[in-house]
Design a protein around this nucleic acid. Structure first.
Lengths: 150, 150
DNA sequence: ACTCTCTCTGCATATTTATGCAGAGTACGC
DNA sequence: GCGTACTCTGCATAAATATGCAGAGAGAGT
């Protein structure tokens, strides 16, 4: 599942790049453009991706969603501060940061309002993030690893 | 033709109102909403209207075109200045404005770059707009009457 | 009057997009 | 190990949208 999660996320990023930089007119052309970039997908997957991404279509061209205040925007200032993400038990995730930056990172996580996060406590270089259960913990861990490229 | 032009233009305005104010999810629902407002149209006409209007679709909702710097934006400051549009012969259109505003209106017309306009001359409250032939003159007259609601 | 041109429309259907369904892969609990 | 839950995918096809074609209507010219 983690491997599969990683495969469709890059494909969606590729879709956004393609529609921003070229002039695909329909989903079949988009599928072909993805193939050229090494992604395997059919029209049905692409249709689902486009809907998930909120891409609009007007006439012969696609319109990417407006630059939205996504959770990732909360992280633009703190991306380089996180050095490690670990789990402790099945409901606690420990985030190690550079010295003195834990608070900033914790604030960014809090602002993201992720449903799987119950609460956070931060020290100087460590944040404890509590999640409801193991499943939520796994989801959080994947999010953090994606965002901080760990 | 003029009568027919007038029928599809109000329908397109109604379409924009409907998609801005309600939640039609597909063209069939839009056709029904138009019927409720007294417009007769089928799905194919609506599809053509939407394309002509530049309306986008994302998932289950329609997105009207952004407020675009259309030629009509050249007119936003001068809309109230025009009081009458007449024709003289088959190549000259005479635009009467309020006193002292002809120049501004003429500039707006010039900036619109309409293909049917050969040239303009403005006085204090009168503009002469030259068109190539009678057909172009008619087209210009319709445009002006639409824009200035005459 | 007739003819031509242009615009728009509906019908029928081609094209494009969305989705039901079954299956695969992964993780987790027992 | 097996069973369950979740996510994602492709196939087939339903649903939605676009478009070819013929025709109607209006205006202008002769």
């Amino acid at each position: 599942m983690a491997a599969e999660l990683r495969q469709s996320v890059p494909r969606r990023a590729a879709i956004l790049r393609i529609i921003r930089e070229s002039t695909v007119r329909n989903q079949d052309e988009l599928v072909k453009a993805l193939h050229k970039q090494g992604f395997e997908a059919t029209q049905s997957s692409v249709s689902r991706d486009l809907r998930e991404l909120g891409v609009a279509k007007a006439g012969d061209h696609y319109i990417p969603p407006a630059e939205e205040p996504l959770p990732s925007n909360h992280f633009s200032a703190v991306t380089n501060f996180v050095v490690e993400v670990k789990t402790a038990g099945d409901a606690l995730t420990v985030v190690k940061t550079t010295t003195g930056t834990a608070q900033s990172v914790a604030v960014a996580i809090d602002r993201s309002d992720w449903p799987e996060v119950v609460g956070t406590i931060s020290g100087d270089d460590t944040i404890f993030v509590a999640t409801e259960d193991a499943r939520a913990q796994r989801k959080l861990r994947e999010r953090l690893r994606e965002i901080f490229r760990i």
